[in-house]
Amino acid sequence: MPKLSQISTLILALSAAVPAWAQSVTITTAGGDYGTGMKEAMWAPAGKALGLDVRGETQSDGMAALRMQVSSGNVTTDIIHLGSGEGAQAADLGLLEPLDDTVVDQKALPSGAVSKFCYPFSSYGTVIAWNTKTYGQNGPKDWAEFWDVKKFPGRRALRNNAQDLLEAALLSQGVPPEKVYTTLSEPGGIKRAIDRLAELKPHVAVWWTSGAQSAQILKDGEADLVETWNGRAQSVKDDGGAAAYTFHSSIIGTDCLAVPKGAPHKADAMKLIAAMTSPEREAKLTDYIAYGPMNQAAYAGGKVPADKMALLATAPDNAVGVVYADAAWWAKHADEAQAAFDAMMNQ
C-alpha cells in the first residue's frame, strides 16, 4: 500500500520527538481500516500468542517517519509498515535492519517477492474502475481501452504519481506485462511512457493524491474512468456507488513489514513479524480489507472464503495478465521517473 503523504514535516518532527515510554514492541501502520485490520487480524493476536506487549502507532507517511526516526537517532518504532517500493528505497538508504531468516520464513512467498529487508504480507492491484452510469458494465477491459478516448469518451482521474502509471502507459501501447520493466529500463523508456501519459492528460479531470480521494471521485461521478486501487473500488461498490472495476491488466503492488535500523526491540520485532504473517492471520486480514495475502498458503484450504477470493488481486483467478510492480526498479529509477512526471504535469 503506498504511503500517502498528507502530513507536514513539522508534525512528523513533533511525533518523532516523543520518546518511547513503555518497554514494549511498537508497530507503526498507516491507520484507517487497513490499520485496524492489521491490528485485529495480525499483530494483536500474534502479540498475545508471543506474550509481547504490542503498541500500535499511526503514520500516514511511514517512509517519512522512518527517515526522521533513523536520521535523528531516536528510533521509537520496532516494526514499520511500508509499501514495497519504499521498503526497497529504505533498504538502499540503510534505514532498515536485515530480516533474520532464521526467524522470518521467506519460503512461503511467491518467487521474486522475497526481500532481505521488508517482508511482504499483503497485495493490492492498481485497477481500472469506471462509473456504471456512464458505461454500464462494459467498461475498458485494459489500459489500451482506458487510453481510447473515442471508444470511452469521458473524464479520467489518475494518481498524481508516476508509480503504476508508467507501467499502465506501456501496457496501453501493447507492451507485454513481462516486458514492461525491460522496456522502461531501455534508453528513452521512461520518456516513452511519460509521452503516452501526456497524450491522455487533456482528458484527465483530477489528479488525485490519496486513495480516499480516488474513491470519492469514483463515487461522486466526478470522473468517469478512475485509476484506483482495487480495495477502494470495491468499497465504492459496497457503498452502493455506481462503480465497477476489472482486475485485468492490473499492476500489483505489495506492502511489507520492516524493522528500522536501531529499533529498540529488534529480536522481538522479528518474532512478531513471523507470527503475524502466518497463513491464518494473513487470511484473517481479508475480513477487514480486500488486500490479497502474500503468504501463498493463505489461499489454500478454504481459509479465505470464495466470495472474498474474487476480490483479491493475488487470488489465483484474478492475477492474470498483470504486472507485479518491481520495487527494485522503482528504488533505482524513482527520482528520474517522478521528475519526468512532474515536468509533464507542469507543461
Partner: peptide
C-alpha cells in the same frame, strides 16, 4: 491546494511535499 487543486495546482508547499514524500529528497 492539495485537496481542491486536483493535482493541477502545485504551489511551493505542494512541491516541498512532493520532494519530500514522493522523491524522498530530504
Amino acid at each position: 491546494p492539495a485537496i481542491l487543486g486536483g493535482g493541477r495546482i502545485s504551489p511551493i508547499a505542494i512541491r516541498i511535499d512532493r520532494t519530500l514524500s514522493t522523491l524522498q529528497d530530504w
